[in-house]
Design a binder for these strands. Structure first.
Length: 508
RNA sequence: GUCUCGUUAGCUCAGCUGGUAGAGCACGUCACUUUUAAUGAUGUGGCCGUUGGUUCGAAUCCAACACGGGACACCA
């Protein structure tokens, strides 16, 4: 059964055919629109206070999709919507060509169609600024009916799979994606203004590196080799620092072949930036400035709700990870350096932990268990144990710790940053350790990237680098709780009738 | 990956302890020249997610599967 077999669609196809028979193109080629709806509403808002409530000397042509259709005999009220706003238009039989109102307008036009109307502004008895129509043209016939006008489209599956329909029916969804676009645009401008250079590094990698994650594999036919969709741009961006660029950033997609849930999509957007001659402390200052910049330009209040929480963005604090365990997590101070005591404490509190974990890993577990969810206001957690920070530089004063921070907001990690490891021999050793882990069955362990080590061996200036998950940032700033609500086309499982392209023999 | 809830008309949803399917919106027809989810009258519209089982009989009970939501685990 095809989509078009539906009786409602058949009915609308018949209307389109009837229009063609009457010499009206249901898919017009051009539009004479000369203003948008929000401009129309702004420019004519004075009529609300005018004596006559109308001004026939003004004339506009607007266009949009019909969302409401109210026929009252020889007059009708429609609501049409364009990207900017919704407008009520008043259509009467006597203001249109002979026969058009009864034979075309009432019979062939319906909710969902895209039309163009011209006329003059007036205010109705109910006080709504509207357009008094004296010219009507169908631009596009919709042969599929829209969802119900009051409840709209609420089925999440359909909203994600048919996002166009979601955008038609739910104007607040459009708002969310406008904010997303603004955030990316502002981010780009912020870093450019700071002197960073935007670069594009490969998305098809011979070696998947820069993060612990399973990659997607694709195949290059001409070369006869497999390629990995990148899991992080990190190693390429650092090569650029070696090459002499001193501040670079890249905003784009990463791909990770892992599960999907409310905070994970197989492809996600991040910004990574690297800054030579700086340390993670400079990045803390930069990050605060970045948030101020975003809040300022997005005109967001410093007190922002997120679900049940209220986040105060005027209060950024900073605390070393181990200190946070007792100060915030309430863990007795005497146990946070003792492996056995931490094991007992975690198990007493219902967490399953393996005996094989070392002190640094256990401190990480303790943080996840007792601290993370309590970090509502923006908090920089600093000085991570070296065991859980394979790419970060050791702290000069305490080599068990690293010059690293993660930023937590509303109980979630938003950014990860550190002073970069730039000792090539140390880096080589860490890659070798990863190879052992991989041989031992860790599918997410890093692969050896000899060229990256070679690059470092030419000398990389002391550099600080940071990554921010853009999707999660957008979630935070738009009070959305599923990553699918900030991605226009989130990944979905294939439907039964959708064939896997690899099962077909089609070639272009 | 595990647990849990859901899937009924184009859309939003009812449908009890099993007895051949209901409403509102939309759509068709009629009335109506200032309505606001317009209103009134009337009509059309269903492989009850898929497959199997129990039963004289299944939208309803059971099982498996598919897709989706939520939670947990891993990650960003």
């Amino acid at each position: 059964m095809s989509f078009f077999d539906n009786k409602y669609i058949q009915q609308r196809i018949e209307k389109a055919d009837a229009l063609k028979a009457e010499g009206i193109n249901p898919y017009a080629n051009d539009s004479a629109r000369n203003t948008t709806i929000d401009k129309f509403l702004n420019v004519n808002s004075d009529l609300a206070h005018a004596e006559t409530k109308r001004d026939e000397s003004r004339h506009y042509c607007v266009a949009g999709r019909i969302k409401f259709f109210r026929v009252m005999g020889k007059a009708s009220f429609l609501k049409i919507e364009d990207e900017s706003a919704m407008l009520q238009v008043y259509v009467t039989r006597d203001n249109l060509p002979e026969g058009f109102y009864n034979n075309v307008f009432k019979k062939q036009i319906e909710v969902g169609d895209i039309i163009e109307v011209e006329g003059f502004p007036f205010v109705t008895n109910q006080g709504e600024l509207s357009l008094h129509v004296d010219g009507f043209k169908l631009l596009t016939k919709a042969i599929a009916p829209l969802p119900e006008k009051f409840h709209g489209l609420t089925d999440k599956e359909m909203r994600y799979r048919q996002r166009y329909l979601d955008l038609i029916m739910n104007s607040e969804v459009r708002k969310t994606f406008k904010i997303r676009s603004q955030i990316i645009s502002l981010t780009r401008r912020f870093f450019e203004d700071k002197g960073f250079l935007e670069v594009e590094t490969p998305m098809m990698h011979p070696i998947a590196g820069g993060a612990n994650a399973k990659p997607f594999v694709t195949h290059h036919n001409a070369l006869g080799v497999d390629r990995y969709l990148r899991i992080a741009p990190e190693l390429y961006l650092k090569r650029l620092i070696v090459g002499g660029f001193e501040a670079v950033f890249e905003i784009n997609r990463n791909f990770r072949n892992e599960g999907m849930d409310a905070t994970h999509n197989p492809e996600f957007t991040s910004i990574e930036f690297y800054w030579a001659y700086k340390t993670y402390k400079d990045l803390i200052a930069l990050t605060k400035e970045y948030f101020e910049y975003l809040f300022d330009h997005l005109k967001l209040p410093a007190l922002l709700p997120y679900g049940e929480m209220e986040v105060d963005f005027s209060k950024f604090t900073e605390i070393p990870l181990i200190e946070s365990l007792s100060a915030i997590g309430g863990v007795p101070e005497i146990i946070v350096h003792d492996k056995e005591k931490m094991l007992v404490y975690l198990r007493e509190n219902g967490f399953e932990v393996s005996d094989s974990l070392n002190v640094g890993q256990l401190q990480g577990e303790m943080f996840d268990a007792f601290v993370e969810e309590k970090l509502i206001n923006p908090t920089f957690i600093t000085m991570y144990p070296v065991e859980i920070s394979p790419l970060a530089r050791r702290n000069d004063a305490n080599p068990a710790l690293t010059d690293r921070f993660e930023l937590f907001i509303a109980g979630r990690e938003i950014a990860n940053a550190f002073s970069e490891l730039n000792d090539p021999i140390d880096q080589l050793g860490r890659f070798e350790g990863q190879l052992e882990a991989k041989a031992g069955g860790d599918e997410e362990a890093h692969e050896m990237d000899e060229d990256f080590v070679r690059a470092l061996s030419y000398g990389m200036a002391p550099t600080a680098g940071q990554g921010i998950g853009i999707d999660r940032l957008v979630m935070l700033l738009t009070n959305e709780h599923s990553i699918r609500d900030v991605l226009l086309f989130p990944a979905m499982k294939p439907l039964k009738h959708e064939m896997n392209p690899s099962d077909e023999d089609e070639e272009e």
